[in-house]
C-alpha cells in the first residue's frame, strides 16, 4: 500500500497521540513518532506497523531543549504533510507556586518548547506551500483558575501563539488548528473525578483532530458543549468566577 500522507506526531507516547496515530495508521498514513523515551516510542512504532502495515519511524525530541529543534527538523525523513503536537505536562500547581524552576518547566513544556518546534516545521511547510499544523491546547488556557493557572497560562500562551501562527501561515497554504480537548480520560487525569458528559476518550479527540485536519474551523473544542461553557466562563465577573471555581 502506498502511504496517503505523512504525519509527524510530537509527544507520541501520550494517550491522545497514541489514539491519533492509530486513526492515521488505519487510513494508511506514514507516521513519524517523536518523543523522549526511545523504548516506548519503539513499542508504539511496532504496534502501528503490525496493525496497519504502514511505515513508522521514530525520532527523539525533548521540547525542553530548544537548541536541538533545528537539527530535529533537518533530520526528519520527510517534511510531513501534517504535524500534530500532543506534548503536555500538567505538573503540580502547588509545588510550582513555591518553586520557580517547576513553574518554568511547566511553561516551557506546554508553551515555549512546543511553539518553537512547531514554528520551525510550519516555516518549512510554508516554503513548500502546503501543510497542516495541529496543536493540542486546553480549555484551561481560556481562563486562569487558582487550581491550575501555571498550566493554564502556558496553554493560554500556546493557544495565542497558534492563533497568530495560523494568521501568518494562511497566505503560505499552511493551516494551523488549535484543539481544546476538554476533560479526557488519560494518564494525566487518572484519579480525578470527571463529569461523564464533559469527558472525552482519547479516541474521540483523535477523531476530532482528523476531522479538523481535513478542513473547517481552525479552533475546535472536542465536545461542542465546551465552546458554550468556556464562553460563559470567560464572561463571568471575577468575584463570581472565583466563588464557583474554587
Amino acid at each position: 500500500m502506498t502511504p496517503r500522507k505523512s504525519v509527524l506526531i510530537l509527544g507520541a507516547t501520550s494517550d491522545i497521540a497514541r489514539a491519533t496515530a492509530r486513526r492515521h495508521g488505519a487510513r494508511g498514513d506514514a507516521l513519524i513518532l517523536a518523543g523522549r523515551d526511545s523504548h516506548r516510542l519503539a513499542d508504539e512504532a511496532a504496534d502501528l506497523r503490525l496493525r496497519f502495515g504502514v511505515p513508522v519511524e521514530i525520532r527523539l525530541l525533548d521540547v525542553l531543549e530548544p537548541d536541538s529543534f533545528a537539527a530535529f527538523v533537518d533530520g526528519l525523513p520527510v517534511l510531513p504533510d501534517v504535524v500534530i503536537c500532543a506534548v503536555g505536562l500538567l505538573g503540580d500547581q502547588t509545588a510550582a507556586e513555591r518553586t520557580p524552576v517547576l513553574a518554568d518547566r511547566i511553561i516551557r513544556s506546554n508553551f515555549t518548547g512546543p511553539a518553537a518546534v512547531l514554528a520551525l516545521v510550519a516555516d518549512a511547510m510554508a516554503a513548500r506551500g502546503a501543510g497542516v499544523v495541529v496543536g493540542i491546547s486546553s480549555v484551561a488556557g481560556d481562563r486562569g483558575r487558582a487550581a491550575n493557572y501555571v498550566y493554564g497560562s502556558a496553554k493560554a500562551g500556546f493557544t495565542a501563539y497558534l492563533s497568530g501562527l495560523g494568521g501568518r501561515m494562511a497566505q503560505h497554504g499552511v493551516r494551523v488548528v488549535t484543539v481544546r480537548p476538554g476533560f479526557v480520560r488519560t494518564r494525566m487525569t487518572e484519579g480525578l473525578r470527571l463529569p461523564p458528559l464533559l469527558t472525552a476518550t482519547p479516541d474521540e479527540v483523535a477523531r476530532a483532530i482528523l476531522r479538523a485536519e481535513a478542513g473547517g474551523r481552525a479552533d475546535i473544542y472536542v465536545r461542542p458543549i465546551w465552546r458554550f461553557i468556556m464562553a460563559v466562563i470567560r464572561s463571568l465577573p471575577d468575584s463570581l468566577f472565583r466563588r464557583i471555581s474554587s
Binding site: D15, D43, E44, A46, D47, L50, R51, R187
Partner: peptide, 9 residues
C-alpha cells in the same frame, strides 16, 4: 487494558 500494543509477529 491500556497496555494494548502488538509488539512482534
Amino acid at each position: 487494558v491500556p497496555m494494548d500494543r502488538l509488539l512482534d509477529f
